[in-house]
Design a binder for these strands. Sequence first.
RNA 1: GCGGAUGUGGUGAAAUUGGUAUACACGCUAGACUUAGGAUCUAGUGCUUCACGGCGUGGAGGUUCGAGUCCUCUCAUCCGCACCA
Length: 814
Amino acid sequence: MSYNPSEIEKKWQKIWAESGAFEPSDNQNMPKKYILSMFPFPSGRLHMGHVRNYAIGDAMARYYRKQNYNVLHPIGWDAFGMPAENAAIKHGKHPKEWTYSNIAYMRGELNSLGLSFSKDREFATCDELYTKWEQEFIIKMFNEGLLYRESTTVNWCEDCHTVLANEQVEDGCCWRCDNPVTLKEMEGYYIDILKYANELLEDLELLRGKWPNQVLAMQENWIGKSQGLEFEFKLTDSSIDRLNREFKGFKVFTTRPDTIYGVTYTALAPEHPIVKALIKNELLDIDTIKAIEKISNMSEVERAKAGKEGYNLGIKVIHPLTKEEIPVWVANFVLISYGGGAVMSVPAHDERDFEFAKEYDLPIKYLISGYEEGLPYTGDGELINSYEFSNIPNQEAKRAIIELFEKEKLGKSTINYKLRNWGVSRQRYWGAPIPLVHCKSCGLVAEKLENLPITLPEDVVISGEGNPLENHPTWKECLCPKCGAKAIRETDTLDTFVQSSWYQFRYATNPKKWKEVGIDKSDVEYWLGVDQYIGGIEHAILHLLYARFFTKALRDLGFIDDLKEPFDRLLTQGMVLMNGAKMSKSKGNTVDPDKLISKYGADTARLFILFASPPQKELEWNDSAVEGAFRFLKRLYDRKSKVTTKSIPTINHSSLSKEEKFARVKVYEALEKSINVYEKTFAFNTLIASCMEALNGLDRQKNSLVWSEGLYIILHLLEPITPHICSELSEELFSSSNLKGKIEIIDEVFIQDTITLAVAVNGKRRGEIEINSNASKDEIISNAKSRVEKWLRDKSIIKEIVVPNKLVNIVVKG
RNA sequence: GCGGAUGUGGUGAAAUUGGUAUACACGCUAGACUUAGGAUCUAGUGCUUCACGGCGUGGAGGUUCGAGUCCUCUCAUCCGCACCA
């Protein structure tokens, strides 16, 4: 009978499903491995990126199960989010129904790939039980001041009709729909991730060597720590009067205190309170007000593209050291979200300040030697024109000037981060409700824990206009958990990245406890950190930063015991390409996993994906290479008639022929390679190639014992990659569908009677010799010399080098 | 601009500590079997040369008996961030 993947695969999937073979043991004395692939959003269908992600994770999980580890390999659904609402608007289907029916379909797809996920631990983040515990965490965060409400400038996506966190703005556009993001003043909820900025930065060191450098670098840049000086510019008396005595000055932050004597103007962001006051009180002329308002309405990207623009505000501050009066401008390049929205401007030594000064003809004062007249100089040098700091190297002056400010109580050494607090409110329906209540007398109050979960109403109209929870006739009406008076429920829902920030702990929690507890501390202690996390690079900042933060925050809130990092090792898989471009529906270059499986079977799909490229690299799709993978499996299946023993046979190696010995060498080379691949490099492509070589080697000989041993080992090595065919064949041939434990490597196999050595003259390969493996060095050299005699003629030999088992190099001159 | 990565046949890619460059696969060429072949099997396949040979891991140097691998410089491509003061 020839290879029939659909029959074999159905059979084994049924056996696995019925036996519960992939449920982890409750025995926490066993050595464990937690293998986690990032969970999918239930969009409706799996794509090749998913297949790749899960093929990699599954190979690892199956490998460790074979090595008798207790393996946790769970799957679930990142189920809240905009697309469910968009589908509701488009097709009139309720988001809940849409989501759960997608999950049902995709669960079937995962199953048809033969993935060894734990079924008992599967959940969707929109399950009310999941929401319940998440809301408890949020309440705890609120009580501890880690979650707060604030009115500030936010990123707004008009298309999604919601606020976005800073991390969710890519190139000035919404990460999900690519619509340009605008800035808007709005109330919302924030999680104080900045409180953990330094820990998030420093703990990256714990991940060095275990996470890709690229991801570590991206996180480091995103956190963006910088050390500098913060001080206040005091307004002149007349300026204070002009501002109706509402302000006395404003704070600025600088990383270049060494250039303090070169300040020739200061600049405020258009959203700065002083600017707002000037506008409100109509203290600027009408054209200027209009121009500033125009800038305010622009996104950061638009402002950057527009070039430098600003207006003199007609007020002045006093230089803290020289006491000179310095003009205050409003400028489009000053960001309200960083350093208080105000800067000291040193055009001589800052490119942006320089550009602005040129535009408005402001003075430029050079302070650091090495500059070129007419250009900004940002390099190092000795200070000039800097009073007592002149002639000092500027890096030294930085420290000295900060000391001076601190001594004179003018300012202080400060650390600033680029990272912003995490805005988690979304003005949408399909998300976890924020469990807070607005009470007229008590203010903002947390729900009682016994009232959790606060669930979504089912009877909503989803039109795309406004927030469906806000528009619901009765849902938001509630009683104040504190005073019992009538109150209003919060109608914002949580960012979906909140759900994916703690799912790794939920999986680890024994499902028998899911109703009683959100996260079980001892289960987490046993299973975490995740030994291997696998996912796309697109989450390098977003999800991975949030999940790292949540781990630290949940620890400090007492929900988990000491744990610094959730994911010990991270593998970022490469994209799946077709004709050099990322597979996408809009480009029409996708391959449908379902069709692939029905044509060739899951084993072929998995084999091709792992063979075509190492997991970290991009994978170029190639239909005929898929055929090749299928051919290999067919060939493997056809060779089953060669096996004559029911278990791994004992072989008298020395009695074998050359071809038989060669076959065994290839088989054992593959076995040797497998450990390194499964545990360290994940270069499954090279392991598969070794198995192919082994099969090719076996094909060149006829010894049935060598065949039996060879196929036993190959099936063993490939089982994590192509589990169905390997289970089928090993059941049929070796009465064991469950290849467990280690196979001992037989050193004898690698010992050869004769060895082939390359012979080189001056490092250039000129031929090879076959020689008895215990030949002396002199024998080898004389043998080698006669082989390359032609190249030695009329030359004098300077040196003879023998590299054992590799080559002979003869160095000549003349 | 800053940061991270990658450059090897026609293609996807291999190559412990520096030690026979191109394993394995795709494609291609020729042949066998076949009514047929997009099935299967066999042989060949880096470039160049009639040949001996020469040249070959983006480029240029260097270290070494020996460099894809180590060092210096350089070019190209990709990715991320980007007025963060």
